[in-house]
Design a protein around this nucleic acid. Structure first.
Lengths: 208, 208
DNA sequence: ATGGGCCTCCGCCGTGCGGTGGAGGCGGAC
DNA sequence: GTCCGCCTCCACCGCACGGCGGAGGCCCAT
């Protein structure tokens, strides 16, 4: 019997999944969470084997909760449920310790298969996103996009509408340094300027 | 027997709802649609009584389909399923002819109740949004954040990293006009500049 | 100890950007 | 008819921005 936890901020999705999955004799839904905090509480009890979590949730997001679960080393395998088929998303989720990755376009059979696979200790990535993923694994398009601590801070404040001088004062550093960090952030993200950089970083959930 | 059609771009949601609702002996799911066009096709056949449709779908959105269904005068009662509890959304949906309005926070019982109510010719608005609705009916609060067509286009291109001159060429308008649109977009969004405007618009899903 | 990543800072310089204050045409709403 | 929202365009101006080419200190790994 696989003890499953569902995490999604929309109750229709949670209840729908519950009805859909409990029809399978090997699966038992032992808990539901509406956000990352609730999910972490449930996982902490240790009474579950697999968690099916939406990436996008209020407060603590699915990815943040995933990171927490992975580092804490609970014996819970997490399947990420996402709207995005971007390779970067998948890669990031897998890096953070996801055992499975499903799109919201997945059907019941595929979800059940994924749950049973990861419950058995395996990994499951939906076909439509597996292609891009292995491409990056081979190194065809490597370069994992990430920013240094300072770059992230500076870009976050830029996204909040502060100008360089204000960012400098906020962080207690010189304006020239802010420019340097922004410049390297643009380069890493392949952005033409702060607007595009903010757009890309938001999509990759590097800033909020 | 109530013949029901489900419309949502996420297959997990559709299948989940199907499993959840077909458990009720009075409800039969006779069709699923992944976008507005499919929904209109299904409704046109006339073989259904109630449609449960998500507002947000690619191509023809739920609201647009709703409008079409209402003006064409099919004998189908539409229940709108939305993430937003904004009064403006509810108001607009009801204006366009929705017989019901549910949030994604709704539980199974409430959904079933809504379906049976509208199938009987009634109207159902979820409790949590009924309050805001009457508030706006009185005129207590209004104002929703939205951008004009041009403002959205211009801001989207700005988020893609184009500079004003390039945006102007792309849209076949003058650079001054681009600046005007951007300026009014900043004002509407309460943003200090393009970076913050892009951040806000992305969060509000006004651009992608 | 040499290299590399990160953080810090500096000046220079062109220009893209955003604010201000206009103008007119078009369509729908009252 | 008159108002209002939307789209279009113009000139001016100050400055924030971003690219360039430097510099040094820190820590860690090879």
């Amino acid at each position: 019997m696989i003890r499953l936890v569902l995490a999604d901020d929309h109750r229709v999705v949670r209840e729908g999944l519950r009805w859909m999955l409990e029809d399978d004799p090997d699966i038992e839904v032992v808990g539901e969470a509406a956000d990352g905090a609730e999910l972490l509480e449930l996982v902490a009890t240790g009474d579950c084997d697999v968690a099916l979590v939406d990436v996008r949730m209020p407060g603590i997001t699915g990815l943040e909760a995933l990171e927490e679960i992975a580092t804490r080393g609970y014996g819970v395998n997490v399947i990420v449920l996402s709207m995005h088929d971007d390779a970067a998303y998948v890669k990031r989720a897998v890096e953070l310790g996801a055992a499975g990755y499903l799109l919201k376009s997945a059907g019941r059979d595929e979800i059940v298969r994924a749950i049973k696979t990861v419950a058995a200790g395996g990994a499951y990535v939906q076909g439509e996103v597996a292609g891009p993923l292995v491409r990056t694994a081979i190194g065809a398009d490597d370069e994992e996009v990430r920013l240094s601590g300072r770059e992230t801070e500076v870009l976050q404040l830029a996204a909040d509408g502060l100008e360089n001088k204000q960012i400098a004062r906020r962080l207690g550093i010189g304006e020239a340094t802010v420019k340097t960090h922004l410049g390297s952030a643009y380069e890493r993200l392949g952005a033409a300027g702060r607007a595009e950089a903010v757009a890309i970083a938001l999509r990759l959930e590097l800033i909020h």
